[in-house]
């Protein structure tokens, strides 16, 4: 069964992914990227807290975290690009699945930022 099947599962996965990326960039000595990912993590925590309303809480289908596994063992430029591409794809796929516009907007912004990083 797909594991990203609730609002919380998606947002929590995103928060954990950003935390892992922060640690990854810190270990790689890329402080700016680490700060950027930590800002996203913090923002996603706020989004998770503020935007869950029972009126629109519905099951989510068709997403599995296995499809968005990050390889964080490779700190090379190519490895960083691959991680950013995966993160961008995760946000691009999950944003339309959530029926709260404020959350979609936050996920779309994350997708855009990761896609920009992947293309650098």
């Amino acid at each position: 069964m797909p594991s990203l099947n609730t609002f919380g599962a998606i947002l929590t996965y995103a928060i954990e992914m950003e935390s892992r990326l922060r640690d990854y960039y810190q270990a790689a000595g890329s402080e700016e990227r680490a700060r950027e990912t930590d800002k996203r993590r913090s923002n996603l925590e706020r989004v998770r807290r503020e935007n869950v309303t029972e009126i629109k809480l519905e099951p989510i289908e068709g997403l599995d975290e296995a499809d968005y596994a990050l390889n964080l063992d490779d700190a090379s430029a190519a490895g960083q690009q691959a991680a950013e591409s995966t993160a961008a794809r995760f946000y691009t796929d999950t944003a339309p699945k959530i029926n709260v516009r404020e959350v979609q907007r936050a996920l779309e912004r994350c997708a855009k930022q990761h896609a920009e990083n992947a293309s650098k």
Partner: peptide, 12 residues
């Protein structure tokens, strides 16, 4: 209840 339901409750 579930975490999301509890989040919704605390938000309310």
């Amino acid at each position: 209840k579930t975490r999301d339901e509890a989040r919704g409750e605390v938000r309310r």
